[in-house]
């Protein structure tokens, strides 16, 4: 490939490759290596933000698979994360090893997700949104009232995860676990996109009738999309449960579902890089706003109580400005930046 100007492909297989150039491969490798070295330099607070990002990345990429790639909107994603969290928590509380519990959580969430995905055969767009909203509300009710499984209003207490006797206690160890799972999730979703199944998802999103005529089984593929997306959401939930060590139904409210939707809209619908960027952005935004109010407290004491109300406004405003000026999300901006530098300084 060296010595060629630009990119050209001799087979579809090559075009669908994850990396088109060696540069991409090496820069990603370098990026990952740098991330892996982060825990050696960062303090626990910054690490905790990174950890939250890892969980958010898994949740966002799973929702993007369903909403961005397969075109099925879901307002119940927060609750699906909750199902995985409770299932994984119950599994480890009953002595199941952590990794198996994580998969069990994902499995439980996949089943629930597929069940609530059944209406997607008949419902589209806003109607599906309402149907999944119902899933969110029903599941929230279950979290609060199924006391034997969820602890009801008292919640569940957990121990840090242990794999083969190695306890992932503390931010630093947790980071490696969360990072590894997040990386695996991204690899899985990126590879699903390259298969005929991934293309079937995209065809359903683009126009369901053409997809059906081309031979895509709409019902099966929509259910698989719900199942896979909820599975990954359940994994995110299992990780969240074992990261915070305490579960209560309030953590998986409608607010969480909306946050995840905001992540993928900001990041870019249908883009994996976009999901990551959206997750990072939405996790960082409140931190940046908090840091800003804190640094201002030095100059104007007592400003935090006044700015607190403003902060929600700033948050909303940022989202709105994003939708106006970056309607295709951060992923698109990133693409533009890349293509600018690719030809720099001789853009033509």
């Amino acid at each position: 490939m060296q010595g060629n100007c630009g990119l050209f492909f001799e087979s579809y297989r090559a075009e669908a490759g994850l990396f088109n150039t060696g540069f991409q491969r090496w820069s990603l490798g370098l990026f990952v290596a740098l991330l892996l070295l982060c825990p050696l330099v960062l303090d626990t607070y910054l690490l905790s933000v990174l950890n939250l990002m890892c969980i958010a990345v898994i949740g966002a990429v799973s929702l993007n698979l369903l909403t961005g790639i397969c075109g099925q909107i879901s307002l119940g994603h927060g609750a699906f994360i909750g199902v995985g969290a409770y299932a994984a928590a119950q599994a480890t509380l009953n002595g199941v090893p952590f990794l198996a519990a994580l998969l069990l959580g994902g499995g439980a969430s996949a089943l629930v997700g597929m069940f609530f995905g059944v209406p997607s055969l008949r419902l589209k767009g806003i109607y599906l949104a309402i149907a999944t909203l119902a899933a969110q509300l029903i599941l929230e009710y279950v979290f609060l009232h199924w006391e034997t499984a969820t602890g009801g209003s008292r919640g569940l207490m957990l121990e840090p995860p242990k794999i083969l006797g190695f306890s992932f206690e503390g931010e630093r160890r947790m980071f490696y676990l969360l990072f590894a799972v997040a990386a695996c999730t991204l690899a899985v979703v990126a590879n699903v996109m390259r298969t005929r199944h991934g293309r079937a998802f995209v065809s359903i999103r683009d126009f369901y009738l053409s997809a059906e005529i081309a031979g895509v089984n709409l019902f099966a593929y929509k259910l698989v999309a719900f199942g896979l997306s909820s599975f990954l959401a359940g994994v995110a939930g299992g990780l969240w449960a074992h990261y915070t060590l305490f579960l209560s139904g309030e953590q998986f409210g409608i607010g969480l579902s909306i946050t995840y939707l905001a992540m993928i809209v900001i990041g870019g619908l249908g883009s994996i890089v976009g999901s990551v960027m959206g997750a990072v952005f939405m996790t960082l935004l409140p931190e940046v706003l908090t840091a800003a109010t804190r640094s201002l407290t030095g100059v104007f004491p007592d400003i935090s109580s006044q700015l607190a109300a403003l902060r929600e406004g700033v948050f909303g405003l940022t989202l709105m400005l994003f939708l106006i000026f970056e309607p295709e999300g951060l992923a698109n901006r990133w693409r533009l930046v890349k293509s600018y530098w690719k030809l720099y300084p001789f853009a033509h």
Binding site: L52, T293, R294, T297
Partner: peptide
Amino acid sequence: DVQDDAYNVQ
């Protein structure tokens, strides 16, 4: 040092 959590666990 009072900070606002906006009733949000995260």
